[in-house]
Simulated scan of single mutants.
Amino acid sequence: MTSTTYLVTGMTCGHCESAVAQEVNALAGVEGVAVSAETGKLVVESTAPLDDAAVITAVDEAGYSAVKA
């Protein structure tokens, strides 16, 4: 299992967390997602290393911005 952390900007509440989690969970290989609006962190658990650009694009589609931590 691989764990990758991203910093997400623009999240302010649980709805924001849910939107990000839903988009990222849809990516192939993702086994779990932990999102915190309070810390601005997104931790993605996957079966193999993920394409960072795909994760960042998924966060963008949810309406937020992300960079790999």
Rank of each mutant, 00 (worst) to 15 (best):
1 M>N: 04
1 M>Q: 12
3 S>T: 14
4 T>Y: 01
5 T>D: 05
5 T>R: 13
5 T>Q: 12
6 Y>G: 07
6 Y>F: 15
7 L>E: 15
7 L>V: 12
8 V>F: 08
8 V>A: 09
8 V>G: 04
9 T>L: 04
10 G>K: 11
10 G>S: 11
10 G>R: 08
10 G>E: 06
10 G>H: 11
10 G>D: 06
11 M>D: 05
12 T>V: 10
12 T>K: 11
13 C>L: 04
14 G>N: 05
14 G>Q: 09
15 H>P: 01
15 H>R: 09
16 C>Y: 04
16 C>E: 04
18 S>A: 13
18 S>N: 10
20 V>L: 00
21 A>R: 12
22 Q>T: 15
22 Q>Y: 03
22 Q>F: 07
23 E>W: 02
25 N>Q: 12
25 N>W: 01
28 A>Y: 01
28 A>W: 00
29 G>A: 01
29 G>N: 05
31 E>R: 14
32 G>N: 14
32 G>M: 01
32 G>W: 03
32 G>E: 12
33 V>P: 03
33 V>H: 03
34 A>M: 05
34 A>H: 10
35 V>W: 03
35 V>Y: 05
35 V>P: 05
36 S>L: 06
36 S>N: 08
36 S>A: 01
37 A>N: 11
37 A>Y: 15
39 T>N: 10
39 T>V: 02
40 G>P: 10
40 G>W: 13
40 G>R: 10
40 G>Q: 09
40 G>H: 12
41 K>Y: 06
42 L>V: 12
43 V>C: 00
44 V>E: 00
46 S>Q: 11
46 S>H: 14
46 S>N: 12
47 T>H: 08
47 T>C: 05
48 A>P: 03
50 L>C: 11
50 L>T: 09
51 D>E: 15
52 D>H: 13
52 D>Q: 11
53 A>N: 13
54 A>S: 15
55 V>W: 08
55 V>F: 13
55 V>R: 04
55 V>Q: 10
56 I>V: 15
56 I>N: 00
57 T>E: 13
57 T>F: 00
57 T>P: 02
58 A>E: 10
59 V>S: 10
61 E>G: 04
61 E>M: 07
61 E>N: 15
61 E>A: 13
62 A>P: 07
62 A>C: 07
65 S>V: 09
65 S>P: 00
65 S>L: 10
65 S>W: 01
66 A>N: 06
67 V>R: 14
